[in-house]
């Protein structure tokens, strides 16, 4: 689904956090390679899922796109405009178009501000005066996200986690953005409430045509939400494909492992999928393995994997737009095909 004229285009995006040490003069003694050379793009109205284990650099990627962090290298362009190192003033016109929804509904709302102030803050900062006034607009937004508009004057502590996350969604919508980066928006919520919030986001995406970068740590949630999915491991994208290709024909061993961990929600007549248990921990991003970063946990690793980093390319057997970074991609025969109902929307 890659577009000739994408909304957001990221190439070679890199973020290394310096590790400082030493006394009395502090100097850089190393670097956390949180994100190391990402390439992807998001088309208008498209939802890209970004999936990976904890610590693989998903949040860092989200914060780089929203320019909360300064990239170490690479390029980010929004509507063809290079925003990689744009300052606050240069970003001002774009700020209203790229918004973020945060993981922690308790930390992402200022406890000393009323809901009204929280949601109208973005409009105030950007000098937006909607017809009928900001308060009216806030009430509208509260209604859109399924909250009582009369709760305008309440404080965040008076709401539950799910309701707070809705407030966060309303704040992100206040500026009528074109792209929303949602950093694990439901991970902190109760399973029963997760579905409601995902549903809300889905509705928002459809009704308002907003593009999403949806970050999650498992493939289950993304499946209902994203047209394209990128799988990250230790700061790199290991596989990126349209949803059906990724779930139906996963080529990277890591993607297979993640998919095998997705709880089954489909019919009983399909034979149970073999569960791949990954051994060991994710290596430290301070000192990532040479060659393929997944090789310390890959059951197919060879010497080539240790010496040569596999490029992210359309390996043989992949549909266009399906890229895999592996020297020995999986084929359908090697592991049982993961189940996928014919229509994922219906499964949802």
């Amino acid at each position: 689904m890659s577009n000739a004229n994408p909304l957001l285009d990221v190439s070679g995006l890199t973020k290394h956090f310096p590790i400082k040490g030493g006394f009395p003069i502090r100097r850089t003694v190393g670097a956390v390679q949180a994100v190391d050379g990402l390439d992807f793009s998001v088309a208008e109205g498209e939802s890209l899922g970004l999936v990976g284990e904890s610590g693989c650099g998903k949040s860092t990627t989200g914060r780089l796109i929203t320019r909360l962090l300064e990239p170490t290298g690479g390029k980010i362009s929004y509507r063809g405009k290079d925003i990689t190192h744009a300052g606050r003033k240069q970003l001002a016109p774009i700020r209203s178009e790229i918004q973020m929804i945060f993981q922690d509904p308790y930390a992402s709302l200022n406890p000393r501000q009323t809901v009204g102030k929280i949601i109208s803050g973005p409009m105030e900062i950007n000098g937006i005066e909607p017809t009928g006034g900001r308060e009216k607009r806030v009430r509208e937004l509260l209604e859109i996200v399924g909250l009582n508009p009369e709760h305008y004057n309440r404080f965040p502590h008076e709401f539950s986690g799910g309701q707070r996350q809705r407030i966060g969604v309303a704040r992100a919508l206040a500026l009528e953005p074109k792209l929303i980066v949602a950093d694990e928006p439901v991970s902190a919520l109760d399973v029963s409430i997760q579905a409601q919030v995902v549903n809300l986001l889905q509705q928002v995406q459809k009704d308002l045509g907003i593009a999403f970068v949806f970050i999650a740590h498992d493939l289950a949630i993304v499946r209902h939400f994203s047209q394209r999915v990128a799988v990250m491991y230790l700061g790199k994208i290991v596989e990126i494909a349209d949803r059906d290709d990724l779930y139906g024909n996963p080529r990277h061993p890591y993607t297979r492992a993640l998919l095998s961990a997705v709880p089954e929600a489909t019919a009983d007549d399909v034979p149970a999928r073999e569960r791949i248990l990954l051994k060991g921990d994710v290596p430290s991003p301070i000192n990532p393995p040479s060659g393929c970063r997944f090789r310390t946990r890959c059951w197919k690793a060879t010497d080539k994997c240790a010496s040569e980093a596999p490029p992210l390319v359309q390996v043989e057997g992949n549909k266009p737009g399906h890229l895999t970074a592996c020297h020995y991609p999986e084929t359908d025969g090697t592991v049982p095909a993961p189940r996928l109902s014919k229509d994922p929307q219906a499964a949802a």
Binding site: I144, G146, L147, N148, H157, E158, F159, S160, G162, Q163, V191, S192, I193, Q194, A195, Q196, V197, V198, N199, L200, Q202, Q203, A220, I221, H224, P263, A265, A347, A348
Partner: peptide, 21 residues
């Protein structure tokens, strides 16, 4: 994951208990 229900727009949970109760 549990399938999302279509009732997303309905106000749901009761007020948080932490301080208020």
């Amino acid at each position: 994951m549990t399938p999302p229900t279509p009732s997303a727009a309905a106000p749901l949970e009761v007020t948080d208990e932490t301080v208020e109760k």
